[in-house]
Computed example of a mutant assay.
Amino acid sequence: MDLPIVVGVDGSESSLRAVDWAVDEGALRGAPLRLVYASLWEHYEGESLAADLGKPSEQVTAEDIVRAAAQRARTRRPDVDVSTDVLPEEPEYALVREGRNAAALVLGTRGRSGLVEMLLGSVSLTVAAHANCPVIVLRGRHDNQVRAGTRGRVVVGVGEKGTDSAALRFAVQETKLRQVTLDAVRAWRCPAYETTDHPLLSGEPARLHEQHAVEVLDKALKEVPAEVHLRRRTVEGPARRVLLDASHEADLLVVGARRNPGHLGLQLGRVAHAVLHHSACAVAVVPEQV
């Protein structure tokens, strides 16, 4: 049986956009969709869904939320099998557990403040930091489009794992499903202590670091299938800035996050943390086992 695409829904506009994105992803993969509402204490605070249901917002129940989300998904993609569940527990724990038997988790950006579109909500951040499967967080104004997208490009940040990178494999899969370009980016920097003021030597350290970046990128991409339309780029600068710049030209940005089974804290890394908060497009965080 194919693993489902799991979506955390709460009735907010961002979670409904996540439903749209996820059901399109399910159609591409031939995978079922599972819609999950999990909460111990939150009450529904949105107005748009309440208006659609013809109820005051304080009367909207968890069952109403998942039922409306399921109807939205079935209307958009009648060919995708949709199931729902309401879990009376903290959403962070419930969704991380759901990710153990999921092809991917899809979440919106909703937080509990007025900075929803700028900063990531605590649930999405925690789930992205702990889930065992890829976590896609929807960002940007066109974040509910999968097949066509708006830019025709998947960007992946290439690290040191090379062909063993789960993030790269996920990015290749998404590129093939969408039939778009894969933009593989390797950031590099010349450490300050290696620079020199001598006019004959000033370019040498930078050239060597750029050459190393090219070699890492070539090694990582050597097994990418020939049918993938591939664009290779090495860019000087901090990886966070390089990938955030690239996100403005992408429909999906893919990054890896190391998972250490013996570590209990957030396992994201500075790059993944930054792009989750500030990317201009949807972000997929793919766990990389240490």
Rank of each mutant, 00 (worst) to 15 (best):
D251T: 04
T126Q: 12
E174L: 05
E117K: 11
Q179A: 15
V66G: 01
D164F: 06
E47D: 13
D81C: 04
S12L: 02
L200Q: 14
V228H: 09
V96N: 05
D10V: 09
K161A: 14
P287G: 05
L33D: 02
A166C: 05
V66H: 01
L208R: 15
H229K: 15
E89F: 09
A18V: 04
E223R: 10
Q173E: 14
L268S: 02
A239F: 02
E42W: 11
E288P: 04
A166R: 08
D251E: 02
V156M: 01
H263V: 13
P88A: 14
G30E: 00
L87I: 15
L244Y: 04
L53Q: 05
R72H: 12
R207E: 14
A166Y: 05
L264W: 15
A166I: 04
V235R: 13
I65W: 01
G54T: 07
V235H: 06
A50R: 04
T61V: 05
E90N: 15
E58K: 06
N260E: 13
S14I: 03
L253C: 03
L252T: 00
P88C: 08
R231T: 15
E63F: 05
G140Y: 06
E236K: 10
H263M: 12
Q289I: 09
V185Q: 01
E98K: 11
L177S: 03
V127K: 07
H263N: 09
V36M: 04
V80L: 11
R232M: 13
V214I: 13
P199V: 13
R67L: 08
R189M: 11
L268K: 00
H130S: 10
P238D: 13
A187G: 12
E63G: 08
P32D: 10
E223L: 10
S279H: 10
I136P: 01
Y93N: 11
V116F: 00
E89N: 14
R258W: 06
G149V: 01
V106H: 01
V154S: 06
R29Y: 03
W21V: 03
